[in-house]
Design a protein around this nucleic acid. Structure first.
Length: 810
DNA sequence: GGTATGATACTTTTT
DNA sequence: GTATCATACC
């Protein structure tokens, strides 16, 4: 950071008149300026990787406020993560001062929660209306609830896997199709069952006064449809709507934006001219080439069709990259150029060619990790900071070998993602207690902690109470309070339940008194015996659990003392007195905030930072001077699930594009000839993405270790002489095939024989965990390894590699 | 009702 | 490699 910028930050807060127009446009190129000052018609900014889109967004907001005199409260800016939202707000505040605080800058989900907390009372549910203290169910809660639904409907959980059902439900919600519609559209027995599960699942959510992530969006859209006057309130309020990462929006999110920013026809018909609410001014920013969440419902068509959806739209293209060397961009362009049907776009840089890309073909994943580790040592010796280095991989499981070697060599590192803090068992248990206290109808949370720690309320007792609740049409919590009346309950169980009910009531009185979140949490952990049970245990893991709980208490305390600090804090709410240090607001904060704090900020000055490990998905939006892109093998990256499916392969390619463009100065590419995936070693050919880059950009290397290995007689085999040119990754892969075979053979001797795949033929109906219901089109292959083409309806035909998988489990 | 054991499946994932 | 689940036992 230059002295100049530092002084700039130290100048006093901008006066109410704000910065000068010149300052807001300073340092921007022509298309960037055009995007900042554009007024009126909907605007699409196609922003290539590293083209300064965040700068454009923040400057545009500042421009709108200070030059076009928009009220900050009339601005709604949507980002994909809370971290991005916090950063954007901060940067706008630096430009226009404190008044920027009342803007809404948040994720789709947070924005919807804020609307729903205020308005959801308008919507009906069984025996009343929704209450604003609703719980928010995440993936784990959803799975628990769906498991209960499968039990209630007496379905075979093998045939109807909760995960597959949820995927199906989620797809419907993203498309704004509710359970009634799904039921009406069901064309066969199987789909009817799926729809029945959807229906009951939604009923259970309503009974629990709970919404899942997808509901947050869908319900808001439905609310706007059902109550035009509510929609109008928000249309009047938001005059300027900005959406970041538009390529990752799904249909429901699109509909939400559309209802705020399109000129509704029905309005023109029913209202006199003067009373119409004109549409908000819309700007969306995105890059179709970086769309990597289609598998989660994101619809890349939203960005591709923008000009048709908003007929008078303007499009601005940002192609100049300010991040990477031309070498890196040429490689990235080479890869992404292989995708069909994309709008032409070519990133360029005036930063010069820079370093050549380094490639490495490893013997196996350990060798690959050794190479990365050794290379980092060399770089650090040459003056690089460990914090400048990132290691990317396709799946979280691949992080292990890197961790092993870094631990051994003493290289400090940080893994981003994987098992997150808020997904740890003890943290979720603690939060389940709190959620159940805040919303006693929340059955999933209640049942989670009912017998945690063990207090003698087992499956039998739970079943009795559940049956009683069902019969009396009362909530599970109400049934617990009246457990004496439940038939078939053992006296022993009954007294255990009484003890639990007393505990909860005592804790609830604390919540009702408006006690601070951290106090409630600590008391709960204490009185419930949860802490004691961990303290008594001699499982070493439980010591860590205690630490994590202490950390959670610290988070709660921080929140209670200053509700406006923290990544998703919304000063607008705080100023309006909406956020209180109590339980509901704390729960909302943790429900919608992932552990973004894990990602280290740019290391400045003395801080050398540590090496960062993460998946390619997590890497999106970040940048590092030095990047290692590992596991470049067909079957790993691109992922085996995507092989043979054009659509998915293109998404993998975009992921490769994202990975490559994260790098500023140096890029390393590596692959392993043999890699152990769950038990058996497998031999994978070089990733096709390697062949898609211009050959002359990459220097292929090998190390001493690899040389010795190849010259060992038992490993070199008869397929070819060791050594020789290394130019082609495919050639060296071949050479090592016998090594792979030898190891695979040795491994298989100590392993029990693989189970054959039961016959699977065209026409069979199957379920898949992610894609839901499908019909088999064809199967090719042998006993323990086959490729099946399966038609998953709206998801298209997939080709899946089956390994020892029984049909039903696919 | 609780616990130890073994078998089994699962490895993209922001909210 | 590991988390979850079913089962058999106490």
């Amino acid at each position: 950071m230059s002295e100049l910028t530092e002084t700039l930050f130290e100048t006093p807060r901008p006066t109410p008149s704000g910065p000068s127009a010149d300052a807001l446009l300073e340092g921007l190129n022509e298309p960037q300026r055009a995007a900042v000052v554009h007024a009126g018609a909907p605007l699409l900014v196609v922003a290539g990787a590293g083209s300064g889109k965040t700068r454009v967004l923040t400057r545009r907001i500042a421009w709108t406020i200070s030059e076009r005199k928009a009220h900050p409260g009339s601005i709604l800016a949507i980002t994909f993560t809370n971290k991005a939202a916090a950063e954007m707000k901060e940067r706008v505040e630096e430009l226009v001062g404190r008044r920027a605080r009342i803007m809404w800058v948040s994720t789709f989900h947070s924005a919807c929660v804020r609307i729903l907390r205020k308005e959801i009372g308008a919507l009906e549910r069984e025996g009343g209306t929704w209450k604003s203290n609703f719980s928010i169910y995440d993936a784990q809660d959803q799975k628990r609830l769906m498991t209960l639904v499968v039990q209630d409907l007496d379905l075979d959980p093998k045939r109807y896997q909760p995960g597959a059902l949820l995927h199906w439900v989620s797809n419907h919600k993203n498309e704004l199709r509710d359970a009634e519609q799904a039921t009406a559209e069901a064309r066969n027995k199987l789909e009817e069952t799926y729809a029945a599960a959807y229906t009951l699942y939604q009923r259970r959510l309503r009974e629990a006064n709970a919404l899942d992530f997808d509901d947050l969006i869908m319900t808001t859209v439905h609310l706007f449809d059902a109550f035009p006057e509510i929609k109008e309130t928000y249309r009047r309020r938001f005059r300027h709507v900005l959406v970041d990462e538009y390529q990752d929006t799904n249909h429901a999110q699109y509909a939400l934006i559309h209802s705020l920013c399109a000129d509704p026809l029905e309005q023109e018909a029913t209202r006199p001219e003067g009373e119409r609410v004109p549409p908000a001014e819309l700007m969306v920013v995105g890059d179709a080439d970086q769309s990597i969440y289609a598998f989660r419902g994101a619809n890349i068509r939203n960005i591709l069709d923008f000009e048709e959806d908003f007929p008078d739209a303007t499009t601005i293209l940002l192609e100049q990259n300010y991040r990477s060397t031309q070498t890196i961009l040429t490689a990235a362009n080479g890869i992404i150029g292989h995708n069909k049907g994309r709008k032409p776009k070519r990133l360029w840089s005036d930063a010069g060619d820079g370093e050549r890309i380094v490639g490495y073909v490893a013997d196996d994943e350990h060798d690959e990790a050794r190479f990365v580790s050794g290379e980092i040592d060399t770089l650090v010796d040459g003056g690089a900071k460990p914090g400048d280095v990132a290691v990317f991989y396709r799946t979280n499981a691949q992080s292990r070998v890197f961790e092993e070697i870094f631990i051994r060599t003493g290289q400090p590192y940080k893994v981003v993602g994987g098992v997150r803090f808020y997904e740890r068992r003890e943290v979720r248990d603690a939060l389940a207690y709190l959620r159940m206290l805040a919303n006693p109808e929340d059955q999933v949370s209640l049942r989670r902690i009912l017998n945690t720690p063990k207090r003698g309320i087992g499956d039998r007792a739970v079943a009795c109470v559940a049956a009683y609740a069902e019969r009396e049409r009362i909530s599970f919590w109400a049934a617990l309070q009246r457990a004496e009346e439940a038939p078939g309950l053992a006296t022993r169980s009954l007294s255990c339940i009484r003890g639990f009910v007393d505990l909860v009531q005592e804790l609830q009185s604390m919540v009702d008194a408006g006690e601070r979140a951290d106090v409630v949490l600590e008391t709960t952990l204490e009185r419930s015996g949860y802490l004691a049970s961990l303290e008594e245990s001699d499982d070493p893991q439980d010591a860590t659990r205690l630490e994590n709980l202490a950390e959670l208490v610290a988070v709660a305390r921080e929140f209670a003392e200053d509700p406006q600090a923290g990544p998703s804090a919304d000063p607008a709410d705080v100023d309006a007195g909406l956020v209180e240090p109590g339980l509901t607001d704390f729960l909302e904060r943790v429900a919608l905030v992932a552990d973004t704090d894990q990602i280290p900020d740019d290391p400045d000055g003395e801080d050398v930072g540590v090496v960062t490990l993460m998946t390619l998905h997590t890497a999106k939006g970040l940048e590092f001077p030095i990047v290692f892109l590992t596991g470049l093998e067909d079957g790993v990256f691109p992922h085996s699930r995507a092989l043979g499916d054009q659509t998915e392969l293109e998404e993998e390619r975009r992921l490769a594009y994202v990975g490559v463009t994260r790098s500023r100065e140096r890029l390393y590419l590596s692959r392993a000839v043999v890699r152990s995936a769950w038990g058996a070693p497998s031999h994978n050919p070089a990733s096709r993405f390697l062949d898609e880059m211009p050959v002359d950009l990459v220097d292929w290397r090998r190390t001493e270790a690899a040389q010795t290995r190849w010259s060992r007689p038992d490993l070199s085999g008869s397929l070819g002489a060791p050594g020789g040119g290394l130019g082609s990754p495919t050639a060296s892969g071949r050479r090592n095939f016998s090594a792979a075979a030898a190891r695979a053979d040795a491994a298989s001797k100590s392993r029990k024989p693989a189970r054959a795949i039961p016959s699977l033929t065209a026409g069979d109906r199957v379920t898949h965990d992610s894609f839901g219901l499908g019909t088999v089109v064809s199967v090719e292959g042998e006993a323990d390894r086959a490729v099946a083409s399966i038609d998953f309806g709206s998801d298209g035909v997939k080709r899946l590699l089956l390994r020892y998988a029984p049909v039903e489990k696919l």
